[in-house]
Design a protein around this nucleic acid. Structure first.
Lengths: 223, 223
DNA sequence: TAGATTGTTAATCGATTAACAATC
DNA sequence: TAGATTGTTAATCGATTAACAATC
C-alpha cells in the first residue's frame, strides 16, 4: 500500500467501508476486474470520485484495464486496518449495552472480539450477557491493560461516558466506539467513533415531516 | 416556525439533533438565553454556522439579546418533527434485531413507540422480545396498514432488506430506519436513514491505524 | 498499434467562515 | 441612546466533478 502524503479527509474514510462492501459482492459473483465507470454505476459515486478516493492511497488500477476486484478488496481492507484483529470490551451492560453486545458478539468472524463486559451495578457482576461475563466496573482498567484491549465500547449513560473514556485511554485502549448520547473529548492518540442512535432517528423524523410538508403543501407554494 | 424556501442541506439536518441536545442541557441548568457566541463555545460549531443553520428555518433570535433557550429548544424540536409521536415495527428478530428492539423499547418516552416485531422464522412467532410480540412475517403488511405504523426498523440480513423496505412502503410506512448492511432504494415518499454499524466500526479501525502509523512513523517522514 | 481507462490537474460547486449593516 | 448580537451578504475554503494527458 503506497500511501501518499497529506491528510485524508473524513469524507473519503467514510466511503471506504462502502467500497469494500461492494467489492466483496463483486468478488462473490466472480467478477475479476471493474472499471471506475462500471463501479460508479454500481455504487452510485461518480467515476471521478472513485478514482480520486483510491488515489489517495496508491495506484491500484491499471490504465486501459481497470481495477482488479480481488486486489482492490485486499487493499481497501488493509487501508481500513481489517487485516488484523481487535479485542474489545463493553462498558455499561444496561439496555443499550446488552443490545450492542449482542451485535458485537456476532462479528467475531470479522476480526472483532468482545472479551468482557463491565457494569457499575454490583448485582450484575458475575452475570453473563450473550456469553460474556460482566465484571465490576472497578476492574475495568486492570482488565484492559492486562488483556491488551484495543477498543472500548461505551454504553453507559451520558453522565458517566467521559469518565469511562478517560479510564479506557489511561488503561491503554486506543479506540472508542461510543453509543452514549454525548460528545466525548479524547486525546489525539485515541480514535473515537460515536454512534448517536437517537440523532439518526431524529434526522429520520425530520425527513419524514419534510416529505409530508412538501406533498401536502404542493399547492400552497410559500414564497 | 417560519420556514424559508429552498432545500436544506443534509449537513444542516444532521446538526439539528445536536443543537437540540445542548439546548436541553442548558434548559436543565436553568439557562434562559444564549448568544451564538456562547453557544459556539459550548457546542463546538462556529457562531457563524449556528446563525446560518438556524436562519434556514426562521428568525429565532433577537438582536442585541441572543436566543431564548426554551424557545429555541421548542422550535428545533418542532423542526425535527418531535412534537408528535411515531409508531414503529421491527422487522427481523435475530441477533441485531433483538439488540435494536431493546433500545427501541427504551425510547417510548421520547415519542417513539415500538408496537410489534416480525420474523420470517416460524418458530419465533408468538414469542416475545423485550415484551414485544413477534408475529409471522406474512402478517407484516396487514399489521402496518391496519395499525397505521409510521416507521419500520429493518434488521433482517442484507439479502432480504430491500423486499422488506418495499413491503413497508406499500403498507403505508413512511420512514425506514435501516440497520441491514445494504444500500436500500426507496421511493421519494419514504424517508430512509441507514445505520451501518459495521461501517462505523471499520472507520474506527482506520483511524486507530492512522494514529498508530503517524506516531510510529514520526521519525521516518515519508516524502 | 489502437482503444480503453487510469492518474492527475483544472474547473466547478457547495458548505463554512468572516464581515457588517440592521435592529433590539 | 449605546452596546450587543442577530440576520444576511460576501469571501474563503474544501470537496466533488470534469477534462485530458499518460500509459497499459
Amino acid at each position: 500500500m503506497k500511501r501518499k502524503n497529506g491528510k485524508i479527509s473524513n469524507a473519503v474514510i467514510r466511503r471506504l467501508p462502502r467500497y469494500r462492501r461492494y467489492l466483496r459482492e463483486l468478488q462473490k459473483q466472480g467478477v475479476e476486474k471493474i472499471s471506475s465507470n462500471d463501479f460508479s454505476e454500481l455504487i452510485g459515486y461518480t467515476a471521478s470520485q472513485i478514482r480520486q478516493d483510491l488515489n489517495n492511497f496508491g495506484d491500484f488500477g491499471q490504465q486501459g484495464y481497470g481495477y482488479s476486484v480481488d486486489g482492490l478488496y485486499e487493499e481497501v481492507s488493509k487501508i481500513l486496518g481489517l487485516d488484523h484483529d481487535y479485542k474489545m470490551v463493553l462498558v455499561g451492560a444496561g439496555n443499550l449495552g446488552q443490545a450492542i453486545s449482542k451485535y458485537a458478539m456476532s462479528i467475531i468472524d470479522q476480526g472483532f472480539q468482545l472479551c468482557a463486559a463491565f457494569d457499575i451495578k454490583p448485582e450484575l457482576a458475575g452475570k453473563k450477557v450473550e456469553g460474556i461475563t460482566i465484571y465490576p466496573y472497578e476492574e475495568l482498567e486492570s482488565y484492559v491493560s492486562e488483556n491488551q484491549i484495543d477498543i472500548g465500547i461505551i454504553c453507559v449513560n451520558k453522565g458517566n461516558a467521559q469518565e469511562v473514556a478517560d479510564k479506557l485511554y489511561s488503561a491503554g485502549a486506543r479506540g472508542i466506539w461510543n453509543f452514549a448520547l454525548v460528545d466525548l473529548v479524547v486525546p489525539e492518540q485515541v480514535a473515537l467513533e460515536s454512534v448517536h442512535l437517537a440523532d439518526t432517528l431524529h434526522s429520520l423524523a425530520y425527513h419524514m415531516n419534510d416529505i409530508r410538508r412538501k406533498s401536502s403543501g404542493a399547492e400552497g407554494k410559500k414564497k
